[in-house]
């Protein structure tokens, strides 16, 4: 799957899972924190994205749940392919960012 750009929701979910395995609610909280509150994943978007990412085999559901959490929560783990996709996306984004910076001249007095 070599999409030009990853959906923002997918990117943030992968990012949240890159640190540790989490369940959906924790992903939503983490994404909100990662993005300084700018990105909020709403339920249907979040779980819809999780389904899609799983279909792409970028994430997988943990078969064993950590003991302390209630049973019904599904935990997800980033797969090797997912980690790869995340890295590729980050590379792509930094490339785009470089391109943008070179075109948009910073205003005078503003640090580069």
């Amino acid at each position: 799957m070599a999409d030009a750009a990853l959906k923002a929701s997918h990117f943030y979910i992968l990012l949240a899972l890159s640190v540790e395995d989490r369940h959906g609610l924790a992903i939503a909280r983490d994404v909100q924190a990662l993005s300084d509150g700018r990105v909020r994943l709403w339920p249907a978007t979040l779980y819809g994205s999780l389904e899609e990412l799983r279909d792409r085999r970028w994430i997988e559901e943990l078969s064993e749940h950590p003991a302390d959490e209630s049973e019904r929560r599904r935990y997800y783990r980033l797969t090797r392919a997912g980690r790869h996709a995340l890295a590729a996306e980050a590379e792509h984004m930094s490339h785009v960012a470089r391109l943008a910076r070179s075109r948009v001249r910073p205003r005078s007095g503003e640090a580069r």
Binding site: R40, W42, P43, Y47
Partner: peptide, 16 residues
């Protein structure tokens, strides 16, 4: 979506 995640979706919405 509903069949698999309804409970968790509700929990997230309740938090919001």
């Amino acid at each position: 979506l509903r069949d698999t995640h309804a409970n968790e979706m509700e929990a997230l919405f309740a938090e919001r």
